[in-house]
């Protein structure tokens, strides 16, 4: 009986997560508009002034993809939410629910991400519309591969955020870590510069760090539409999903056993 309950319960959590994002439409609208247009504007202005050998339409599209993907990686609210429920002692009620707590949060996170889906599809449509070399018949295949990479990237992003939020059990506060996490996600994710523009030594770090598989490697696949790039992003995303799960699960099991609040 419980087996049949779990998938539908996850859907409910996902719908809940989606509603939570949709609840504050003003904030969502501002998020859609300001948080994407201003960083993109900055990159366009900077690269406009650069010699044309290095900048070009594909560069601008890289940033359009990367900035949209970074917006979708909404790990911020997961960290805030989990650490708030730990500190305020509300996690107990969530633990009582028939679905494992990390899975509840994952479903909520993914549900929230669905709201941002138009944002990541928009640059893909613009890319196909403005580039005469691309035919729209290839669009569905590209979109499928692109969405698969995004799903993996979201998993990695969720696992990183969840791991950070577990720090609350030890420190009690996460706002400092949260700010540093946001800077790191933007920098190592490749929002500022695509990984191949870094010098040789730094390039390895910029290409292989976990944040890169939530943004940079997906954007690079999106602009090159190259299968080897897809394969690289897929393997990297899968690797970090497995690795971070292996780190997350034992830590979660330990801290959730040690945690005592109301029931004692």
């Amino acid at each position: 009986m419980f087996r049949s309950l779990i998938p539908s319960a996850l859907v409910i959590f996902a719908r809940n997560g989606m509603r939570l994002v949709l609840l504050d439409r003003t904030l969502l609208g501002i998020d859609y508009f300001f948080a994407t247009s201003l960083p993109l504007l900055m990159q366009i202005i900077i690269w406009w002034s650069m010699p044309s050998s290095i900048s070009g339409p594909s560069m601008i599209f890289y940033f359009a993809y990367a900035i949209a993907l970074n917006r979708t990686n909404n790990g911020y609210s997961t960290i805030e939410d989990v650490s708030y429920s730990i500190v305020s002692g509300r996690i107990e009620t969530a633990l009582m629910k028939p679905v494992n707590y990390p899975l509840q949060k994952l479903a909520e996170f993914m549900g929230g991400s669905i709201v941002y889906l138009p944002l990541v599809i928009a640059p893909a449509i613009a890319d196909f519309a403005f580039n005469p070399e691309l035919s729209f018949s290839r669009f569905p295949v590209f979109l499928g591969m692109y969405l698969l990479l995004i799903t993996l990237g979201q998993l990695v992003c969720f696992l990183i955020s969840f791991l950070i939020s577990l720090l609350t059990f030890r420190t009690g506060r996460t706002d400092l870590v949260l700010t540093i996490y946001l800077s790191c996600a933007a920098f190592f994710g490749g929002i500022l510069l695509p990984p191949d523009l870094w010098p040789e030594g730094a390039r390895v770090i910029m290409e292989w760090n976990p944040f890169a598989f939530t943004v940079a490697s997906i954007s690079q696949f999106a602009i090159t539409k190259d299968f080897s790039q897809f394969w690289f992003a897929l393997r990297g995303g899968a690797f970090y999903t497995v690795l971070l799960s292996l780190v997350c699960i034992p830590i979660w099991n330990r801290v959730s056993r040690q945690y005592t609040a109301i029931g004692g």
Partner: peptide, 29 residues
């Protein structure tokens, strides 16, 4: 101390980025 740490990280990233821009050009505007 926390504020100094956050500042150092975010300023460090920004300077690294600006610094790297000059690998492709000798002046920005």
């Amino acid at each position: 101390i926390g504020m100094l740490l956050v500042l150092a990280v975010s300023y460090g990233f920004r300077v690294t980025y600006l610094n790297r821009l000059f690998a492709f050009t000798d002046n920005v505007g």
